[in-house]
């Protein structure tokens, strides 16, 4: 069975051969600049750049990408609407009377603030999805080790990573065998079946844990875990490009500090 995991896409895209350090610096740099920017110009630029990198350079499927974006953006739009209607500063642009004593007011200040926050959220999401869609988790373990994160945490993370997929596979198997035997016919049955699935997953996980111990014993476990050998080439040239892009963004951010669409 094939499931469209983001991880699978991260493993097989056109940027997966690029050193994860470069992608992380780019993605994290963009997030930091976006959320600390005081005007919406830089976040809009970042949206354009990261979308270009994700869709054109990494060749991620546009439909899948938009689908991913709708979830966080849906939340963002609702929150921003609340901000636009509740905050109150500057000139009134629109006033909707609800009761005699209560009007919903949209003012220039609230509109500016709402748009800025929306642009920041959007840019942050795009940067985050750039990292998530182009950098496989397996590469991050090596980076984490380089950042001196204690190897106990990394070992644990690796085991968790490996077993997430074992667990998903088992859950899907149990679920389909329940569906095949009409386990989700009525609501009551569905609740029952779901509980059964959780129960047997728990038992299976327990057994898998014991099997894991056996497998590790069989292979002379001595408290050590191998890391991927670092054979992805680190390209200094690319790193310099990334740093130039980030620097330009910072300079633009400084020059456009406080720029607003509607004036205050």
């Amino acid at each position: 069975m094939y499931y469209e995991f983001m991880e699978n896409i991260a493993q097989n895209n056109r940027l997966s051969d690029i050193h994860p350090g470069i992608k992380l610096v780019f993605g994290l740099g963009c997030i930091l600049i976006a959320i600390s920017s005081q005007s919406l110009i830089v976040p809009l630029l970042i949206i354009a750049i990261t979308m270009f990198a994700t869709l054109v350079l990494a060749k991620i499927d546009l439909k899948f990408y938009l689908m991913l974006l709708t979830v966080p953006l849906g939340f963002a739009i609702i929150s921003v609407l609340v901000i636009i209607f509740l905050r109150n500063s500057g000139d009134v642009l629109l006033s909707i009377p609800v009761f005699d004593w209560f009007n919903i007011i949209v003012s220039t200040g609230s509109l500016n603030e709402g748009l800025l926050i929306f642009a920041r959220v959007f840019a942050g999401m795009c940067s985050l999805f750039f990292i998530a869609l182009t950098t496989p988790v397996t590469e991050l373990f090596t980076i984490a080790a380089k950042c001196r994160i204690p190897h106990e945490f990394i070992d644990l993370a690796m085991l968790i990573y490996r077993f997430i997929f074992v667990l998903i596979e088992q859950a899907v198997q149990i679920h389909s065998s329940q569906v095949m035997r009409l386990g989700y016919g009525s609501t009551k049955e569905a609740i029952n079946s779901y509980g059964m699935m959780a129960g047997s997953l728990f038992i299976n996980t327990w057994v898998a844990g014991e099997d894991l111990m056996k497998a590790m014993d069989c292979r002379c476990y001595d408290g050590k875990f191998a890391l991927n050998d670092d054979d992805l080439k680190f390209s200094p040239k690319l790193m310099i490009y990334v740093i130039i892009i980030l620097a330009v963004l910072i300079i633009i951010a400084i020059y456009t500090y406080g720029f607003t669409l509607f004036g205050v």
């Binding site: 988790v137 373990f141 497998a215 069989c218 476990y221 875990f225 191998a226 890391l227």
Partner: peptide, 14 residues
Amino acid sequence: MQAIAPTVFQDVAF
């Protein structure tokens, strides 16, 4: 049951 590590290299290197 035998595979422990996330990637092929890591598992064989175990």
